[in-house]
């Protein structure tokens, strides 16, 4: 399924970009926040609650979403813009394989930026009270949500000429504002399912939209469907 030469090529292109450094800074924001907290926490502040806020309000819905979207769009959109996509499309590789590879490479680059940030934030914020589950559940939520975001980004970057604008507006307006007011809207929010996984270990104020098992299924399904739609688009749209 994965076309490894294209995977390596995409990863190389993504990690070489100046943009990735800027995204790295964005990914480092939670670390900075945890650092400030570690240095100047209020007397009697609840470490775990703070870490919970950090993951549920900042990391999953904003940082992870934006990083995954931008990288996911870059993986295909840049090749489309530069015209190098022609060299990939004019090969006997299956369209589904090409898109799956692009999503996989974008996902890898995303996790390279996000996972260290999550781990360091946890270590700083929890100050030694770290147990594996308080990193693993958030990591699982981040991983599956970013997989879904990368899929959506790949599909958007083939279907529209302004994928970043649409994607970022979706993340920050729909997921960030509307879905937090209207419960039914959050059913259409990738971040909400990611948070549902995180909530297994770090409960938030609002009840999660679904349990962890359905959340995994839904996020994986989003990734699979957008991958299939992307492959379809690759054979239909003007490149």
């Amino acid at each position: 399924m994965i076309v490894w030469p294209v995977y390596r090529l995409t990863l190389r292109a993504l990690l070489l970009q100046r943009r990735t450094i800027l995204l790295g800074l964005l990914a480092a924001a939670p670390v900075l926040m945890a650092l400030v907290y570690a240095v100047a926490a209020k007397a009697g502040a609840h470490h775990f609650r703070f870490y919970s806020h950090l993951v549920q309000e900042l990391f999953v819905p904003t940082i992870a979403a934006v990083v995954a979207l931008v990288i996911g769009v870059s993986a295909i959109g840049d090749e489309r813009e530069d015209g190098t996509i022609y060299y990939l499309v004019a090969t006997p590789q299956s369209r589904l394989g090409l898109i799956a590879t692009k999503i996989a490479a974008a996902w890898t680059a995303t996790l390279v930026l996000l996972v260290p940030s999550l781990v360091i934030s946890a270590l700083l914020a929890l100050e030694g009270e770290v147990d594996p589950s308080s990193i693993l559940w958030p990591a699982a939520g981040v991983a599956l949500a970013t997989l879904a975001y990368c899929g959506v980004a790949a599909w958007l970057s083939l279907r529209t000429r302004r994928p970043i604008v649409i994607g970022v507006l979706y993340v920050l307006l729909w997921e960030g504002s509307i879905a937090t007011f209207a419960a039914s809207a959050s059913k259409l929010s990738i971040a909400a399912y990611g948070r549902a996984l995180v909530a297994e270990r770090l409960p938030e104020a609002a009840a999660p939209v679904v349990g962890p098992a359905p959340a995994v299924v839904i996020l994986a399904a989003v990734a699979a469907i957008t991958c299939w739609l992307g492959a379809r688009a690759l054979a239909r749209v003007e490149l």
């Binding site: 926040m33 209020k42 007397a43 609650r49 703070f50 950090l54």
Partner: peptide
């Protein structure tokens, strides 16, 4: 978001 979370959790936030 960062400011919102930090302000509740640190001294003189």
């Amino acid at each position: 978001i960062v400011g919102g979370i930090l302000s509740n959790n640190i001294e003189h936030g």
